[in-house]
């Protein structure tokens, strides 16, 4: 029991602790691809710590929605992230294990993020909110179709169950999931405001979606927003790894199994981060009205994967 409680606490803390590192690694990787030296991979931690100690300026028009939104976004993202198994497919006590619940907790975060964008009454915030909700609505279709494809294979909607079932299934049972995985990568890029959907490094009005909504934030609240965004990225990477390639995840609660789990997860996460870095450095950003094509492609790919499974 003690092990399980410790594991659950570890599970809650791991996402916020590791997440900024993922952002740092992607930035470093992009700098490398662009022949720059780039900041240290620990820079996102320093940014968060710095922002936490700064004074804040809030727009006159902002209401309590603007002030509460960073906390809601952070908490909703964190409670979703804690549900995703990272190093162990068994033993966690976190009660929010249902995969639909995880998707909709993220939707809750998006909802308040968009409201915060509208709250300050600037053109930037509103445009960002409009674009974000447009993308989020279509991405939700893609996401739920992907969810349905893994659920169809695993016969369970509980993430931990799915992970352990897929890690033990034979190759031909889960082969159709590779299509769903491709769809999931598209959703991942969209939900995390990455290329080709959004440019996380710009503040140009033509391109930005996510950054436009948090433009008026400063200080602690900006830190929370940035942190939540990195947790969301981490969550999607963990989902990509443990829904589709959970091999090596701990299936018993022994110390050695957990150590192997950590190592395997770290390697797979690095590969995923490299994929994202590569996509970001190699693809151009698509025009906004081309993006639905990509998301509908994701829906279709996931649907085909379901059909192959059930046939």
């Amino acid at each position: 029991m003690t092990t399980r409680i410790l594991l659950t606490i570890l599970q809650i803390l791991m996402a916020p602790v590791i997440a900024p590192l993922c952002v740092g690694i992607i930035r470093k990787g992009k700098a490398f691809m662009q022949n720059r030296k780039g900041a240290s991979i620990f820079q996102p931690y320093r940014d968060i710590a710095k922002l936490m100690h700064k004074d804040e300026v809030i727009a006159h028009e902002a209401s309590w929605i603007f002030r509460a939104a960073p906390y809601i976004v952070f908490v909703a993202t964190l409670s979703a992230a804690a549900a995703v198994p990272i190093i162990s497919g068994v033993g966690t006590l976190w009660p929010l294990g249902d995969i639909v619940m995880v998707v909709y907790l993220l939707a809750l975060a998006t909802f308040f993020l968009a409201l915060a964008g509208l709250d300050v009454g600037t053109a930037f915030g509103g445009t960002g909110a409009s674009r974000e909700m447009t993308m989020a609505a279509l991405a939700e279709g893609g996401m739920m179709t992907v969810v349905l494809s893994v659920v169809t294979v695993a016969h369970s909607a509980n993430i931990t169950d799915i992970t352990s079932i897929i890690s033990q299934a034979n190759f031909f049972t889960i082969a159709p999931l590779f299509l769903a995985f491709a769809a999931f990568i598209i959703v991942l890029l969209c939900e995390n405001a990455r290329y080709p959907f959004d440019n996380p490094a710009t503040h140009l009005e033509l391109t930005m979606i996510h950054e436009a909504m948090i433009l008026e934030y400063s200080g602690k609240r900006l830190a929370l927003m940035e942190w939540a965004a990195s947790i969301k990225l981490f969550l999607f990477i963990a989902l990509a790894i443990n829904l589709f390639f959970p091999w090596g995840i701990a299936t018993t609660l022994t110390f050695s199994a957990l150590l192997v789990g950590i190592a395997v997860f770290a390697i797979k996460a690095l590969v995923m981060l490299f994929v994202i870095t590569f996509v970001e450095s190699w693809m151009p950003k698509l025009r906004f009205f081309r993006l639905p094509d990509l998301l509908f492609t994701a829906i279709v790919m996931a649907a085909i994967s379901i059909l192959i499974t059930v046939l």
Binding site: E61, S63, I65, A107, T110, F111, A114, L115, L118, D119, V120, G121, G126, A129, S130, M133, T134, A136, A137, L138, A139, E140, G141, M143, M144, T145
Partner: peptide, 22 residues
């Protein structure tokens, strides 16, 4: 899934434009 995503978009619009901003 699309419906519930679009409904969220619609209510961000309905609530945001009505109650938030100037």
């Amino acid at each position: 899934a699309l419906t519930s995503g679009l409904a969220a978009a619609c209510f961000v619009k309905a609530f945001g434009v009505t109650f938030l901003g100037k």
